[in-house]
Design a protein around this nucleic acid. Structure first.
Length: 478
RNA sequence: GGCGGCAUAGCCAAGUGGUAAGGCAGAGGUCUGCAAAACCUCUAUUCCUCAGUUCAAAUCUGAGUGCCGCCUCCA
């Protein structure tokens, strides 16, 4: 099965052909670390983590680079507000990134390079661009000369003429062309700086990605990703400076961009102020629910965020968890199934789910469509377990398939089995006694006591469900 | 002004020419002391509007309406 992905550069789905057989090299633009990352950033991280995991599932050895922009205007500005050294502030939010990333079940990148640790590499590239005539220095700043780079605008599908018509660019007398962008910025007093051939200063925003992606992935790597708003100017400028530096070699082959998270149909963004952080959201929903929600819409479609939709996602996710749990209960029973018809059905369902899942994901990572495969497998498993609650290889295979496919999306469905049952021996024993007491009440038809126990435990987050095979319990909640 | 995207049931959301996935919510049923979970059945003759192409259109074309994004820091 071939994998197709949408390439922003060509505006169509293309069959994925890796630079090097069996390997995927990808670079994803990471956060600027001046705050906790917001839900929109979170969508991007989750989307590209899902893409990475699917590449891995397909057997690729994935080298995944995600940077930290730990010096820029916003960090400096925020440092002033918090009365903190800007570079220390950057480090602080790098640490906070990893906390939230863990909750969202994001795999750590192969390398998480920091901009501040790659200044010499950037200076070298800038020097080369200057000597190639693609960049020029003006009063301590260095700019890239966009009109010296043929095809400027090829990624975003616009020309320099189009952009002039926009006329939203402030005229800066020091630039040769209004669209020229900074490679190096002269330091103002009290700003962090590094020494350079052009005096003390710091790098422009775009150059870090060029330096770090080339250092860790080399030229012509496979996938470069980020949010839709990075297409222009960030990625456009990266291409100009990198391909200028590489004298025309291709920078990256596939450019992938996720659509925005919106709130009340408007883009969530820091400048509009209508954002909330993943950290805030984690107070209300588990990282798993947030992740499940974010992947429930194709990554190139806008996603409108609100609590009601999160609740719907949570319920759906619970359904998958329940299915794993019900299967586990059957598998834990004594004996074995001898119902060949049901076993055949389970094997078939597992096979079909995998095929449907792969078909969906092969088509530009259609995780929303892949969900349908998971739900259908869960439904078949539930029905089979209900009819024939006995262990069988088929049931184990079906359960394993559901766990595996969920795992490819970064959803850990096994958690529901482990948490209530395995962790706390004392709690387990206490619950055994409690359920015995309740069982006796029920035998005596003391429904009041039986219901009291159930309701009281429910208040504490422990849910009791009666089944023909006796009561079961689990810990609910986030 | 330039460029681009989107419009599918009460809600979320797949589907880019062959006759509307999946989830949530809702209705009825099975099971149950009750509940929960699970299972079964039902819930869009129709995909923003109007025209056109076609044997066939949610899917293609044209016009219109509405919403959104990029063009400035933004994932």
């Amino acid at each position: 099965m071939s994998l197709k992905l949408f390439n922003t550069m060509t505006r169509q789905k293309e069959e994925f052909q890796p630079r090097e057989s069996g390997k995927v090299a990808m670079y994803v633009c990471g956060p600027t670390t001046y705050n906790y990352f917001h839900a929109g950033n979170g969508r991007m991280f989750v989307v590209f983590d899902m893409i990475r995991r699917y590449f891995m599932y397909k057997g690729y050895d994935v080298r995944y680079i995600q940077n930290f922009t730990d010096v820029d205007d916003k960090i400096i500005q925020r440092g002033k507000v918090e009365e903190m050294d800007p570079l220390a502030l950057g480090q602080k939010y790098i640490e906070e990134y990893f906390k939230d990333a863990k909750e969202l079940n994001l795999l750590p990148a192969t390398i998480h390079p920091k901009a501040t640790e790659h200044i010499p590499e950037m200076i070298e590239i800038i020097q080369e661009l200057v000597s190639n005539g693609l960049a020029y220095e003006t009063d301590g700043d260095v700019y890239f000369a966009v009109d010296h780079f043929p095809n400027y605008g090829k990624l975003s599908g616009r020309t320099l003429e189009d952009m002039k018509a926009g006329a939203r660019v402030e005229v800066d007398e020091r630039k040769h062309h209004p669209m020229d962008f900074a490679l190096w910025k002269k330091a103002k007093p009290e700003e962090p700086f590094w020494e350079s051939p052009w005096g003390n200063g710091r790098p422009g925003w775009h150059i870090e990605c060029t330096a770090m992606s080339l250092k860790y992935l080399g030229s012509g790597f496979d996938v470069h990703g980020g949010g839709e708003d990075l297409v222009f100017p960030h990625h456009e400028n990266e291409i100009a400076q990198t391909e200028g530096y590489l004298k025309g070699q291709t920078f990256a082959h596939y450019w992938m961009h996720n659509a925005f998270l919106t709130i009340n149909q408007e883009k969530m963004s820091k400048s509009l102020g209508n954002f909330f952080t993943i950290r805030e959201l984690l107070a209300k929903f588990s990282g798993e629910v947030i992740r499940f929600y974010l992947l429930g819409t194709h990554y190139r479609s806008p996603l409108d965020f609100n609590d009601q939709n999160l609740v719907m996602a949570q319920k759906g996710l619970e359904r998958l968890h329940t299915s794993i749990r019900l299967a586990q209960e059957a598998l834990d029973r004594e004996g074995s199934s001898s119902n060949e018809q049901i076993e055949a059905e389970l094997f078939k369902a597992a096979k079909e789910a995998r095929e449907a899942f792969e078909k969906a994901m092969d088509d530009d990572f259609n995780s929303a469509l892949a969900y349908a495969a998971l739900f259908e497998l869960a439904k078949t498993m539930n029905g089979c377990v209900q009819e024939n609650p006995a262990p069988s290889e088929a049931l184990a295979t079906a359960q394993k398939t559901l766990l595996e496919l969920g795992g490819v999306l970064g959803i850990d469905l096994l958690h529901s089995v482990l948490v209530p049952a395995a962790n706390d021996e004392t709690l387990k024993q206490v619950m055994e006694v409690v359920l015995q007491i309740r069982s006796r009440s029920r035998q005596k038809k003391d429904w009041e006591m039986a219901d009291f126990i159930r309701d009281a435990l429910k208040d504490k987050g422990i849910v009791i469900e009666d089944t023909p095979q006796g009561a079961r319990w689990q810990i609910r909640g986030n």
